[in-house]
């Protein structure tokens, strides 16, 4: 368990969009975080295939990346996205939950570098991946 896990967990649970989208906090580790999002018809992006919208996947990944930054051992006070690139490899399977794991793999005095991957129930084929730079507030 990392030192500030309780504070980070409290922070994310009062975030209005975290609740509105229906994100679930799965785990916080050393510079890593895992979030899940259950399938929800409100989040459908393509009414014919019933696949959830890329925007919901982006919101999940952006949140997860930010949490991974806060989980870094240098204990940033807060963070914000500078840039985020997302690759969509395949549509998430309708009716299945998706989960994201993010890792903050390098931190400088003011910038954190993060990558993340999203899967549905098939853990052998990623749905999307992301890489980004985040601010670090000391």
């Amino acid at each position: 368990m990392i030192k500030n896990a309780q504070w980070i967990s409290d922070f994310v649970h009062v975030m209005p969009h975290f609740k509105a989208l229906g994100m679930r906090l799965m785990s916080l580790g050393d510079a890593t975080a895992e979030l899940a999002l259950d399938y929800d018809p409100r989040l459908i992006g393509d009414p014919q295939s019933r696949v959830i919208h890329g925007g919901a996947v982006s919101a999940l990944m952006d949140t997860c990346c930010g949490l991974a930054v806060l989980c870094h051992s240098s204990e940033p006070k807060s963070t914000a996205t500078i840039d985020l690139r997302i690759d969509y490899m395949r549509p998430a399977t309708p009716e299945e939950a998706i989960q994201t794991r993010a890792e903050c793999y390098h931190v400088t005095r003011s910038v954190a570098f993060v990558r993340a991957t999203t899967f549905d129930e098939d853990l052998t084929r990623p749905v999307a991946s992301a890489s980004g730079a985040f601010t670090v507030e000391r």
């Binding site: 975030m15 209005p16 969009h17 919208h53 919101a59 949140t63 807060s78």
Partner: peptide, 16 residues
Amino acid sequence: IGNPSLPAIHGGVTAA
């Protein structure tokens, strides 16, 4: 809202 203390629009909402 993403960060309630500012408050600011969630970065994921902006992306979406």
